[in-house]
Design a binder for these strands. Structure first.
Lengths: 142, 142
DNA sequence: TTCAATTAGTTGCTACATCTACTATCTGAT
DNA sequence: ATCAGATAGTAGATGTAGCAACTAATTGAA
């Protein structure tokens, strides 16, 4: 059948993801937050004191990634990392005052981003999109 | 409204993209091709002798990226880079014999990947998915 | 209780992705 | 003909993404 380049849905998906990521990156730049760093912050704003391991599970990411992003967030002064007393291998992440204050600024940006992306797309269409993405993920499991 | 984490369609999109990319990466590993390197090869299999600049346009990627990936492909022996005679700034990419032979092996892998991803998804659903992705991209233009 | 297996985190490696700044070349207006 | 501005490519920097190999701490079974 000889598919041409544009026919691969995964390529379209990838390009869309890159475009959205680069857009949100620009939106977050003024707050000195990178997109994935922001995801960690969003989880911490909901629940302080999670360990890196827990974050890795929530975000479905490699622990290596989380470690480096957490380290960067600490350097930026948004979080502190303390060794857990019950399990001295684990690092718990706590918001600093600066990190806590960031929430008021960044959450509206995230919601505005979501509104912009989904503009003119109905709830049903979003559900259908979610369903198809889930299906594609399941298709390549195992 | 306070969206929770899973409600952002862009996060789902990102996670799906990562999953697909890591899957295709594993599929291509035996051929010593990374996913994005493979995209360059696919274009060259269609049309030999494109410049890095043309590839960047086709793939909608930064020229820096293309330069580095092309350099890697050259190191692997799949392509040769020759300065264009009409415009000595431009580098034209040509397949080596090894790169040309790779096509027979890799194209079936790419099509099998696409088949796996889209299994159980109808043509209409794929069109709808494509339409929604396009809409999301357009939503954040300008 | 003690030692092997497991677990949390880090370091090093490869591969994107994109920005800025740079070199070399080309083009066009004067 | 010449020089300013545009263009193709490279180098360096930052931020993902995930694998392999490592350390340190914990756990569980003999």
């Amino acid at each position: 059948m000889n598919l041409s380049f544009q026919d691969y849905i995964s390529i379209k998906l990838h390009q869309t993801d890159l475009k959205l990521t680069s857009y949100v990156k620009a939106q977050l730049q003024p707050y000195n937050l990178a997109p994935e760093q922001n995801l960690i912050m969003m989880l911490l704003w909901e629940k302080d004191g999670m360990t890196q391991n827990q974050l890795a599970h929530h975000l479905k990411k490699d622990k290596t990634n989380i470690a480096r992003m957490a380290s960067n967030l600490e350097k930026k002064g948004f979080i502190k990392r303390n060794f857990c007393t019950e399990d001295r291998r684990s690092l718990e992440l706590y918001l600093t005052e600066e990190g806590r204050e960031l929430k008021e600024q960044v959450v509206p940006v995230a919601e505005a981003f979501n509104d912009a992306v989904t503009e003119g797309i109905s709830k049903e269409e979003l559900q259908e999109l979610d369903r198809l993405l889930t299906k594609m993920q399941n298709n390549i499991e195992g």
